[in-house]
């Protein structure tokens, strides 16, 4: 299976998560173009995907909270979704949560990772195994996670808050 397919599946999972989230805001689409974004900047609830780039495996990554899933089976690797407090708090507020404790933020980033994992499992079949998401509340050094020499970092933004999807998956 191509590397592109893995990345697409995880990106689709991310879009899917924010699609559901945006439904609560009455927004119909997650991904919009920059020009559309400019037009709809007052709304600022949609997901914007930034330009993907490479991350060396000795880099320190991670925002305030990072959800990590490990992939095994026909493919091996690790996927991180890392977000700042601001983004997670906004998501919690969108769910109608009044409490914004770190514990809830941790749970939330785990839930996002879980959505990505579920989507990947559904799309890539039973031979693609995904671990239970782990949440890390500290910067991560990529070399601690046996990642590929270069992994992909796909920045994204939701309601002006930046976050990152980091993918290092390859065929086993």
């Amino acid at each position: 299976m191509s590397e592109r397919r893995y990345i697409d599946v995880f990106v689709d999972g991310l879009i899917s998560y924010f699609d559901h989230l945006n439904e609560s805001f009455g927004s119909s689409r997650s991904v919009i173009s920059s020009s559309e974004h400019a037009q709809r900047s007052t709304q600022s609830v949609d997901l914007e995907l930034g330009t993907p780039y490479l991350l060396k495996n000795e880099a320190t990554i991670g925002m305030d909270f990072t959800g990590m899933i490990t992939v095994s089976g026909s493919s091996v690797g690790t996927v991180f979704v890392s977000a700042p407090r601001a983004l997670l708090k906004r998501i919690l507020l969108s769910y109608g949560e009044a409490e914004l404790r770190d514990e809830l933020l941790r749970d939330l980033v785990g839930e996002i990772a879980n959505t990505l994992a579920g989507n990947a499992r559904r799309e890539l079949g039973a031979d693609f195994h995904i671990s239970i998401p782990r949440v890390i509340q500290a910067p991560l050094n990529t070399k601690d996670y046996r990642l590929d020499q270069h992994c992909y970092l796909l920045p994204f933004r939701w309601r002006s808050s930046k976050a990152e999807l980091i993918i290092s998956v390859k065929d086993s």
Partner: peptide
């Protein structure tokens, strides 16, 4: 023909990774 978004650059990043690998 259309407005680009970040995902359109994915093939470029993938080829970049390949070029790094060749250099390695």
């Amino acid at each position: 023909h259309r407005t680009l978004n970040g995902r359109d650059f994915l093939p470029l990043t993938m080829q970049l990774k390949q070029n790094f690998a060749s250099l390695n």
